[in-house]
Design a protein around this nucleic acid. Structure first.
Length: 786
DNA sequence: GTGCTCCATTTTTTT
DNA sequence: AATGGAGCAC
């Protein structure tokens, strides 16, 4: 064990770093043992307090570095904290237990896996892996994944897991609705399937430690003793499982310090339970509370604006953020015709500000509600030669080619990993088709053997004969790789190259000769570089550890504040960051606040908190922007300005011309306001189409009698003499009110029509399938005459 | 068993 | 606009 020393030796100097803190901050840093709740408003120096507190604990010899556990939600936050503590205390910082909940507990699980019946080399399934498993199970149970969405089931299972409800309890408690019954069945199989695959999903990384500690009190005590001090960042975002596992760990020493801000709770969709922070003082009756209310980040205008928004929320702890700063510049609202207009305008502002006001590119951030909004900004910035960094969206490790390579490697480490085995058994295609794969899987269930075990004895299994040979070749190939891995004959990056060569994966990409496949090859090379780098950095290279580590990496990690580039990210991604100039874009109804989901109402208060988070990222200048038209689903939509713009304090807001913002206070009186423009049964945001007129082709639509001669059928054809419905509206029998038959959906009635020419769409209400929107030209619809 | 074409759906946010 | 599934031809 390394002993801890500060760089300076005198006691007076050792505490000198406390001098820059305000009284409340100092109190939070130096408050000694016992539970501590720090309610830290935006920009109040929260990370500083946390890092100083850790340094202080070490300096007072309250704990050794390895006895301190600091938990964050994102890798980004963890990294920042690590960096800052390293600056304070140097090398001992490396001995701290610090990271995201998921990474810290996966490390513990790696050590304790055997006690739970898992192998040390378990695979971590991400959301898409989990949905693949669920889809497979739905098919085995004869449910159509088109009607029962794997995503919905996964969401429900994840929800149950975070509430610590196991499949048996779920089966007892949640009988009734069809969806719950299906979820119950799938959940039971899903849990078993993952265990058989020696795999854990993200939720397991939190709930399995609880299971472990519940069943083994001695082990719990071991970890309780190890983590004598526990600190949790963003406590308002903890879900029940996270709450429970940290409560268990802190139960002996009670040295639990949590930092949070209920106003910034934006992850309830992931099960975050705001009551964890609201009830902290009931939970720990001896808890001490320190409020941090002085904001060091933003101008008074920005803070006033933020405050005016958050005040509209009813569920809210009272607190008053204040600043010593001046009002500064007013907040400017940009009104745009459409999203391209919006992106161009923002680009122009950035150019102007960077010249006039001497802002560097890395001082700007564009914040949006959804990832897909980034595209137009990328295009505009490229056009205007503005460097940018895009954070989030499809991450590197989610790309198909990377997931494929990873699947090979994961399979080498853990041959029971069924999902990744199926993923690559025929990728590149080697003559093992869907039929053979299904046969093997069925046999696997029937015989109680794992898929890999069956493959090993494929000769004795009922499979399409030609496929047997291919499977044998595949199995032998993988066994050779595994041999190379376990005997450590080759370095990891060499092994990866071998896998890509001998499997034919690279060959497949080379032969494809498309721009797409070239990109894929480049990504793969980048991945191999990442492995080489990892090998250089770590002397004890374990493929298994590497794979587990990167399973928990996201794109947020690549944010680099020193890179001279404008940052593009979602509001969620921006939490914890700050920028001198912030553009909050797409402030439109059904976008921000987000539009209705299938069955759930939008949590408008959470959307408002999200807007609050966006505002409070800004230090000096803040811009709001919205469009009156926007392309969505390949169609232009009419957009209504966000209600949030009717809620801001207009004394600090101006339009581009300097005028006061006009507001309507009565626009959304009901909390269900998000639905108010789509009250027509099934939500159908596509209804307000403004322009389908510009695009017109020679493709036309007409009515023909098919050879069976029963009823007129609707066909499309391409010819010069096509009929244009714009001019011949009367030719089209598919009018509102018409009764139609769809090949798949059965009979229904047309309830509305939109677009024109080839872009004509109809909304049909089907008796058995509900409302659907269809392209008239393409849909297999026929008219019923009566 | 593979690959192409047509159709339908998708968009919240993240570990 | 882009992705994925179903159905069909080879």
């Amino acid at each position: 064990m390394k002993s801890f020393t500060m760089s300076s030796s005198s006691q007076a100097n050792q505490t000198s770093f406390l001098e820059g803190l305000n009284p409340k901050q100092k109190e939070a840093v130096t408050y000694s043992d016992g539970p501590l709740l720090i309610v830290a408003g935006a920009g109040s120096g929260k990370t500083r307090v946390l890092t100083y507190r850790i340094a202080y604990l070490l300096q007072q010899f309250k704990a050794a570095p390895q006895e301190i556990l600091a938990l964050t939600f994102t890798n980004k936050a963890a990294r920042e904290m690590k960096d800052r503590i390293f600056q304070l205390i140097g090398d001992p910082a490396h001995s701290l237990w610090m990271g995201t909940f998921h990474s810290v507990f996966s490390r513990i699980l790696r050590v304790e896996a055997k006690k739970l019946g898992f192998g040390q080399d378990f695979t971590i399934y991400d959301t898409s892996d989990a949905e693949t498993v669920i889809k497979q199970i739905l098919q085995e149970l004869n449910y159509d994944p088109k009607q029962i969405k794997p995503r919905t089931i996964h969401y429900k299972i994840s929800d149950a897991k975070n509430q610590l409800i196991d499949p048996d309890t779920y089966a007892k408690k949640f009988i009734g609705s069809t969806l719950d019954n299906i979820t119950s069945k799938v959940y039971t199989i899903y849990k078993k399937r993952l265990k058989d695959s020696n795999a854990m999903d993200f939720d397991d990384l939190l709930i399995l430690p609880i299971e472990l500690f519940d069943t083994d009190p001695q082990l719990l005590e071991k970890y309780q003793n190890r983590f004598r001090y526990i600190l949790i960042d963003e406590y308002q975002d903890t879900n029940h499982a996270q709450y429970k596992v940290t409560k268990l760990l802190a139960d002996k020493h009670h040295n639990l310090c949590v930092v949070g801000d209920d106003a910034q709770s934006i992850y309830s969709f992931r099960g975050a339970d705001i009551s964890n922070i609201l009830n902290f003082k009931q939970d720990y009756t001896d808890a001490h509370q320190v409020p941090l209310e002085q904001n060091y980040r933003s101008t008074k205008s920005i803070l006033t604006c933020a405050d005016s928004i958050i005040k509209k929320n009813e569920k809210q702890l009272n607190k008053t953020l204040w600043t010593e700063k001046d009002y500064g510049e007013p907040i400017i609202v940009l009104e745009n015709f459409d999203e391209r207009d919006e992106a161009n305008r923002v680009a122009q502002y950035i150019l102007k500000l960077s010249q006039q006001a001497k802002f560097n590119y890395n001082q700007f951030a564009i914040l949006y509600r959804t990832n897909y909004q980034s595209r137009v900004f990328e295009e505009a910035f490229r056009r205007h030669k503005i460097d940018y960094q895009l954070i989030g969206g499809l991450s590197f490790y989610q790309r198909k080619e990377i997931k494929d390579v990873l699947a090979y490697l994961k399979l080498l480490v853990n041959q029971f990993d069924e999902t990744n085995l199926i993923r690559i058994i025929n990728e590149p295609s080697r003559g093992i088709g869907q039929k053979s794969i299904n046969d093997i899987r069925r046999a696997s269930r029937e015989q109680g053997l794992r898929v890999w075990e069956l493959l090993e004895q494929v000769e004795e299994t009922q499979v399409y004969r030609p496929a047997k040979v291919r499977i044998r070749e595949f199995v032998n190939m993988m066994n050779e790789f595994r041999e190379a891995l376990t005997t450590k004959k080759v370095k990891l990056h060499e092994l990866t190259r071998n896998v890509l060569d001998k499997s034919g994966y690279m060959k497949m990409l080379v032969e494809e000769q498309s721009h797409e496949s070239l990109m894929r090859r480049e990504n793969i090379l980048e991945f191999i570089n990442a492995i080489s780098y990892y090998e250089k950095e770590n002397n004890k290279t374990s493929l298994s550890a590497f794979l587990q580590e990167i399973s928990l990496i996201t794109d947020g990690d690549k944010f680099d504040e020193s890179k001279p580039a404008v940052t593009l990210m979602t509001v969620h991604g921006s939490k914890g960051l700050e920028f001198p100039v912030v553009f909050v874009v797409g402030l439109e109804e059904n976008l921000f606040p987000v539009g209705v989901k299938d069955n759930f109402d939008v949590d408008i208060e959470e959307e408002r908190r999200l807007f609050y988070v966006a505002i409070t990222r800004a230090q000096e200048r803040l811009y709001f922007s919205h469009c009156s038209n926007r392309f969505k689903y390949g169609e232009e939509q009419r957009q209504i300005r966000s209600r949030f713009l009717d809620e801001v304090d207009t004394s600090v807001v101006r339009t581009e011309t300097g005028a006061t913002l006009r507001q309507r206070s009565d626009r959304f009186m009901s909390t269900r306001g998000a639905n108010s423009n789509t009250e027509n049964g099934e939500a159908n945001p596509n209804e307000n189409i403004v322009s389908a007129q510009k695009r017109r082709s020679s493709l036309g639509t007409t009515i023909e009698y098919d050879s069976a001669g029963k009823s007129p059928s609707h066909k499309s054809y391409s010819s010069l003499g096509s009929i244009d419905y714009d001019l011949n509206e009367g030719m089209d029998p598919f009018v509102v009110g018409a009764v139609v038959v769809h090949d798949k959906f059965g009979s229904g009635k047309i309830i509305s029509r939109s677009g024109s020419g080839t872009q004509t769409k109809v909304v049909v209400f089907f008796k058995n399938r509900g409302q659907k929107k269809l392209m008239l030209q393409a849909a297999p619809l026929s008219l019923i005459k009566d």
